[in-house]
């Protein structure tokens, strides 16, 4: 794995599978009396949020704390109108505080790239959502959730599984990261949206597209509904909320056309009655609450794999060697390697 997690495209299939397997081990922690592991003791992780997202911040915070890291929450919101100097100054401050990793949420696409590459800071940078670009840990937790439901046997992957991502793809960082990661994992992604809400050039993505939700639903294993903001209506992306819901909303009638094993996902926060009806969101097919639980395990896995081993500073170049068991010779069975 690289030192940073900026894009789902940074992850090879091996990387992604390692994260998902590690998350699977870490998920059981939630069932133990002491929900804490010592792996990141003494490490400092900063949650740097230039945009409000309580749920993402809490998820990262819980993940870091369960790994015994020190967590500093830094909210710098309200700067979307001011110049970006604040990102640089903030980065320098965090550097001075000795942050080992910065979890960054930002309104500007690419801000985590700037943080990682502008030379302002030596910390690992984890993208917790940037503008309309990417949200790689959300994609990882979605893939993790899909794997648990659709490929419960160990070693079983998502190869050939069909995932429909429905809604405002154009403005969705979740859709971008999911499209990239799910392709890496061998799943077949179909983006379903009115043509106005599909990105220009989407033909070159490794996905299929459709304007017709009803045609896609019976064939899909997963249907992931994206949030659609009402304001999009005013920008003429669609004529009215009612028309949008009628054509692209998931209601009980549409849900009934799904295959028996198919699951319904939503990255949250949901707008019930807009893209998804309440009865669908609360139905047995819905894994929306489980997505939240899995988010903590997946983020623990990412933090552990980025920070748990040797200091990035003593590795050469930008990458930490592949965290593979016994990578320096088989040792785990007895593990009595000398310090």
């Amino acid at each position: 794995m690289k030192k940073h997690l900026l894009s789902a495209a940074d992850l090879t299939r091996d990387d992604a599978e390692l994260i998902l397997e590690t998350a699977e081990e870490l998920r059981s922690l939630a069932d133990r009396p002491i929900k804490k592991l010592p792996a990141l003791r003494g490490r400092t992780i900063v949650n740097l949020f230039f945009e409000d997202s309580t749920r993402t911040r809490i998820s990262f915070e819980a993940a870091a704390k369960r790994l015994s890291a020190d967590v500093i929450n830094f909210s710098a919101k309200g700067s979307s109108l001011s110049k970006g100097e604040s990102l640089k100054d903030t980065a320098l401050t965090l550097e001075a505080m000795g942050a080992d990793a910065v979890v960054v949420r930002h309104w500007a696409s690419g801000a985590p790239h700037n943080l990682a590459n502008a030379g302002w800071s030596r910390s690992s940078v984890i993208n917790a959502g940037d503008g309309t670009h990417e949200h790689p840990t959300q994609a990882l937790l979605d893939a993790f959730t899909m794997t648990r439901h659709l490929a419960p046997e160990k070693g079983q992957g998502l190869d050939g599984r069909r995932v429909a991502i429905v809604g405002d793809v154009l403005h969705s960082r979740v859709a971008r990261s999911n499209a990239l990661l799910l392709h890496t994992l061998g799943a077949e992604v179909t983006l379903v949206a009115p043509p106005t809400l599909l990105p220009y050039g989407v033909d070159s993505w490794n996905v299929q597209t459709s304007y017709d939700l009803d045609a896609v639903l019976p064939k899909t294993d997963v249907v992931m509904m994206l949030r659609v903001q009402r304001e999009r209506m005013n920008a003429s992306y669609f004529p009215s909320v009612r028309e949008y819901s009628r054509r692209y909303g998931l209601d009980a009638r549409r849900m009934a056309t799904l295959q028996d094993h198919a699951i319904v996902m939503h990255p949250g926060p949901m707008i019930r009655g807009m893209e998804i009806t309440a009865d669908v969101a609360d139905s047995e097919r819905s894994v929306i609450v489980e997505q939240v639980t899995n988010g903590v395990a997946v983020r623990m896995a990412v933090l552990y794999l980025l920070l748990g081993g040797a200091e990035p500073a003593i590795t050469t170049g930008d990458t930490v060697p592949e965290p593979v068991e016994g990578s320096t010779g088989p040792t785990t069975g007895d593990g009595e390697n000398d310090a």
Binding site: T132, H133, P199, Y200, G201
Partner: peptide, 18 residues
């Protein structure tokens, strides 16, 4: 708009400039 509208603007999440 932030950059040329094309395949890349869609991937980078930067508003396209057609």
């Amino acid at each position: 708009a932030q950059m040329n509208e094309g395949e890349l603007s869609g991937r980078l999440g930067l508003r396209g400039w057609p």
